[in-house]
């Protein structure tokens, strides 16, 4: 892989950290961000402490980034929060938090990264959805609704940013063993996996494989797509 500048949100743990480490090991420059301090130690890693839902903080991040990096090749909107709740018992605060991080965060990074992305020869945006959207999982109404919004953003951004040669796609991981689902009961996870064509939990490597596919220069005609792992649809 030629050296790329890749921005990954939510890179301090879980899938985001795995993706960041993978691309660092492949010679890329990785810019990570999260609300917490990043603990990845690598010469080509730069961490920013940012609340992805804050328009001021995200604007400042890109202002700083432009001083160090003249372009970005990819933005991976990985930061996300989930909450298992029966719809009728979901507090309004939970709704706000999930939509702030998952939808507004994705919106802000897609919008603010345009200037740096359009200077790349193969610019890419990758957003994270979930199989909870096609599976319409009970107990995940707000999380799934927020990711439905992300999917619609992905498809419309793909059309608008196509003008600049930027592709925008999404990945819908089936359950991956990360912090995000640590609070989900085991039988719930097993029930989800049972609904997939490939009946196993996904690994970070499965997600990274798809990220690499979207990043390939040869994938320039692939945009506005959502690929679900495990064959859930």
């Amino acid at each position: 892989m030629t050296v790329k500048n890749i921005l990954i949100t939510g890179s301090s743990r879980g899938l985001g950290k795995e993706i960041a480490e993978h691309f660092l090991n492949n010679g890329c420059n990785v810019i990570g961000c999260s609300r917490s301090v990043g603990d990845i130690q690598h010469a080509n890693y730069r961490h920013f402490q940012v609340d992805v839902a804050s328009s001021d903080q995200v604007a400042t991040l890109f202002f700083e980034l432009r001083k160090e990096f003249k372009h970005l090749d990819a933005v991976i909107n990985n930061a996300g929060v989930a909450s298992m709740n029966a719809f009728a018992l979901t507090p309004a605060k939970t709704f706000e938090k999930i939509f702030d991080v998952n939808v507004q965060g994705t919106f802000l990074f897609c919008q603010k990264s345009l200037g740096l992305l359009k200077k790349s020869p193969h610019p890419r945006i990758i957003n994270m959805s979930t199989v909870a959207v096609p599976l319409q999982l009970e107990g995940e109404s707000i999380y799934a609704a927020s990711k439905s919004a992300v999917e619609t953003l992905t498809k419309i951004i793909a059309k608008e940013y196509g003008y600049f040669g930027i592709t925008c796609n999404a990945i819908g991981p089936s359950p991956v063993d990360t912090n995000l689902i640590r609070g989900v009961p085991k039988d719930k996870i097993a029930g989800m996996v049972k609904q997939q064509a490939i009946r196993r939990m996904a690994t970070p490597a499965d997600v990274i494989n798809l990220v690499e596919f979207y990043l390939r220069p040869e994938s320039s005609m692939i945009s506005g797509q959502v690929i679900y792992l495990g064959g859930a649809s």
């Binding site: 202002f63 432009r66 345009l114 200037g115 359009k118 608008e160 003008y163 600049f164």
Partner: peptide, 16 residues
């Protein structure tokens, strides 16, 4: 509209 987006982005970057 997309020409305007590109144009404004260029101006924002020059200001930066």
């Amino acid at each position: 509209s997309m020409g305007l987006v590109s144009f404004l982005t260029d101006i924002e970057e020059s200001l930066q």
